[in-house]
Each structure stands twice: as structure tokens, then as C-alpha cells.
Amino acid sequence: MYKRIALIENPPINTCVGCRTCESACSFWHERAFNPEKSRIRVTRTEYGISYPITCRQCFKAPCVDACPTRAIHRNAETGVVLVSEGLCIGCGLCVERCPFGAIVLHPDKKVAIKCDLCGGTPACVKFCPERVLRHIDVNVAAQGRRRSWVESKVGGGA
């Protein structure tokens, strides 16, 4: 199966705290500069202190791929990663409009679409996330963990 970046929280202690360390690390890994506007992961913070990091889901039927008029976006069949070919991208922003999560954006200088490419296998955001709530994981494997903690909390895990 395919891995993506997933948020695995264990409230109230282990949650995304909105520190944006992931944004900062991501931008440097890809751009050799610190700039959240060039980050491929974005943390949304609500007025009520809720934070949630959003990055590409690496969709199987990717709306961004379908939207792209120049076929600049494709899905690597082997790894499952959805990638943008910068040379083909014309910066029209259709993919940005279509992505249900706001996970793909236009680069502020280069004006081409940028999105999470899983850093080639060892994502910077996962490495840096101090709360360790970001995981690079197969969602079905993540679901195993969810099932286990649900069973333990509802059915009881012992004493």
C-alpha cells in the first residue's frame, strides 16, 4: 500500500499544537530557505486555538491531476506520490482551486504549483514535528492503531 502524511493525535496531551515547525522545516528542505509560504504542509489555526496541519493526501483519483490542462501533474504508479513537473506547469491555478484540502498551492516566486512530494521518502515535517503527531504511514496501518486504541478505551485494556 501507499504511505502518506497522516495526523495521529492522542488528545488532550498529544495533539497538533500549531507550532508550524513542520512548515519551517518543509520550506528549508525544498527551498534552502525558511518561508512558510513555500511550505508544502500548512497548519491552519482557528480563533479557538485548534490547529490542524494539511498536506497532500496523495489521492488515488486526484482532482488536481484531472484539473491540470498541461498534464503537469501525475501520479507515480510505483510509490503513489502525486508529483508536479515544474517545466510543464503554466501556473494557471486550476489544481489549487480543485484540491478539496487546499493542499496544493502556487509558489510565490516561481508561480508554479507546489505540493508535498514526501521529500523523496523521509519527510522533513515528520522528522521535526515535536509532538510526534505527524506520521509517514500507510493509512490502513494507521487504522490498525486506531482500532486498537478504540478497543482499549471502550472495551477495556485490563485493570
Binding site: 488528545p11 488532550p12 495533539t15 507550532c19 508550524r20 519551517s24 515535536p130
Partner: peptide
């Protein structure tokens, strides 16, 4: 923590996140 905590909140690039809602 027991009675009032909603979420912990962090400043930019902080590994501690002493803040909370």
C-alpha cells in the same frame, strides 16, 4: 489539565509548547 484544558498551543518552531487554550 483536569478541568479546563482544551488544547495545548505552541509558538512558532517551539518543541515545548507551554501555551494552552
Amino acid at each position: 489539565e483536569k478541568k479546563f484544558l482544551v488544547r495545548r498551543v505552541g509558538c512558532y518552531a517551539c518543541p515545548i509548547s507551554c501555551g494552552r487554550t
